[in-house]
Design a protein around this nucleic acid. Structure first.
Lengths: 219, 219
DNA sequence: CTCGAAATTTGATCAAGGTAAACCTATTTG
DNA sequence: CAAATAGGTTTACCTTGATCAAATTTCGAG
C-alpha cells in the first residue's frame, strides 16, 4: 500500500503529539493540521490500513515503526523548510509554520537536499527543535520548561514550543531566541510571573510564556 | 464562484497554449499538465461554469478577460519559482519546470513577494520568457526562431522554447543561454543543420533545436 | 448511577485525479 | 462519393482527501 504526501504529513503531526503531555486526540490533530475532525478520523482508518499506525475508535492511536520512519521524514522536511524560509527567504519565525505546512506537500526529494545545502546543513529549526537526519535519526532534547527552572539558575534557551504568531513576535522583540543565555532572577509565588536577565536586559515573563520556553540548565 | 490554485494552473497553461501555433487541444493540455485528458475535460467544464473561459465540446476553448488575469497570476508564480530554483536554490534550468509546476499550488502571496525580492526582481525566467507584473501586465516578446534567421545575421539569443531536459542540458553545455550574442554562419539546404558562432566557439545545431531557439536580430 | 456536555465517529456531498469505454471528426480508401 | 477507420474527445464509474450535519460514545458532575 502506497503512502501519499498528505498521509506523511498526518504521521508527522501525530509523532509530535505523541511526545506531548496532552496526548494525541482527534481534535488536537484536526486543529494542528487545520482540517476538520472528520477528515482526521477517515485518515486514521487509512493509515491503520496501511500499517502506519494502529487505531481503535474512541481509544487512540499508536504509530508503528514504519509509521515513525515516515513521520520523521515529514518532520525533517517541515523543519528544513522553516529554516529555509527564515534564513534564505527572509521571513520572520512567526510566519513559517503554516507555510512549511503547505509547501511540504509539493517539494521533491531533490528540493529537500538543495534546501539542506543552501541553509548550511542546519541541525535545528528556527524554534530550536532538532531536524531529523536523512536516515531517520533525531537528536534527543535535554531541556526543561523555564517555568520549572529554579531561581538563580544559569541556563541557555534551547526551544520555543509555540506556534502562536503573537507570542513569537513578542519573543523576537525581546531577543529571546534559541541559543541565548538567560538567568532566572525571581519568581513570584502562586505561578506568578518570572523575572529574568538575557542579552543584558531584564524581562518579566508570564507563566504561559514561561511554559513555552525550554532551557538547558548549565552547571 | 471561487477559484482554486489548481484551476489557476490550468488557466496558465491554456494561456500559454493560446499563443502557440499548435493551438489549445485537450490532449496538449493534458500532456503539459501531466494529467489525463479526461481530467482536462472535467476541469474545462468547471472553468466554463466559473466564467474563466468559454468551452464548447469538440470545438475548443477561449479565455475570458477574468480568465486571462488569473492565468497571468499563475504564470508569474511559475516563472518566479523557476528563477528562485535556479538562482537561489542552485538547480539547473533543465530541472525547474516540473518542480515549479508542483510548488505553484502551495505557495502563498507572501512567498511570491519574498521570492521576487530575493531573486532581485527578475523580469524574465531562466528560459527567457517574460514574467508578468503583479498587476497582470506582460512584456511583449520580439524574437524569431533561429531557424528562420538569415545567414550572416547578428542576433541575441532571447528565449529557449522547450521543456525537454535533454535539450536544455545540451544547450547549457554549449553556453547557449538567453542574452548570449550569436551569429548565423551557414545553413545547409532542405532544413539542414545550421552553423553558428557564440561565446567565441562554433557550433552546429540541428533543425529541431534551431526551432526552439528564439533570437532578436540586431540592426 | 444516571444525565448531559463534549468529543468522536459516521453519512452524504464536493473537488480533483485515474482508467476504460463510448463517441465525434476527419482522412483515407474502395 | 460513401464507408471505414484512426485519433482525439468525452462520458461513466471509481479513488483520495476535504467539508458539514447528524448520530454516537465517553466521561465527569450531581
Amino acid at each position: 500500500m502506497k503512502i501519499t504526501p498528505i498521509m506523511r504529513e498526518y504521521l508527522g503531526e501525530i509523532y509530535r503529539l505523541e511526545r506531548n503531555p496532552e496526548g494525541v486526540s482527534t481534535s488536537a490533530m484536526a486543529e494542528r493540521l487545520e482540517v476538520s475532525p472528520s477528515a482526521v478520523v477517515r485518515m486514521l482508518r487509512r493509515l491503520d490500513q496501511a500499517d502506519m499506525l494502529s487505531y481503535v475508535p474512541y481509544q487512540g492511536v499508536k504509530l508503528t515503526t514504519e509509521g515513525e520512519r515516515e513521520a520523521l521524514r515529514s518532520i525533517r522536511r517541515h523543519r528544513l523548510l522553516e529554516v529555509l524560509l527564515v534564513q534564505v527567504m527572509g521571513f520572520g519565525w512567526d510566519e513559517v509554520h503554516e507555510q512549511a505546512h503547505g509547501l511540504q506537500l509539493t517539494i521533491t526529494d531533490a528540493f529537500e537536499d538543495r534546501m539542506d545545502a543552501v541553509s548550511g546543513y542546519p541541525t535545528h529549526c528556527p524554534h530550536g527543535d532538532p531536524i531529523p537526519t536523512k536516515d531517520g535519526r533525531i537528536a534527543a532534547t535535554n531541556d526543561q520548561p523555564l517555568s520549572d527552572t529554579p531561581v538563580g539558575a544559569e541556563a541557555v534557551l534551547r526551544r520555543v514550543k509555540t506556534d502562536d504568531g503573537e507570542k513569537l513576535r513578542y519573543l523576537a522583540e525581546l531577543g529571546l531566541r534559541p541559543g541565548v543565555p538567560v538567568r532566572v532572577l525571581h519568581r513570584a509565588p502562586f505561578n506568578g510571573p518570572l523575572r529574568l536577565r538575557a542579552n543584558g536586559h531584564e524581562h518579566v515573563i508570564g507563566t504561559e510564556l514561561a511554559r513555552a520556553l525550554r532551557v538547558e540548565v548549565m552547571p
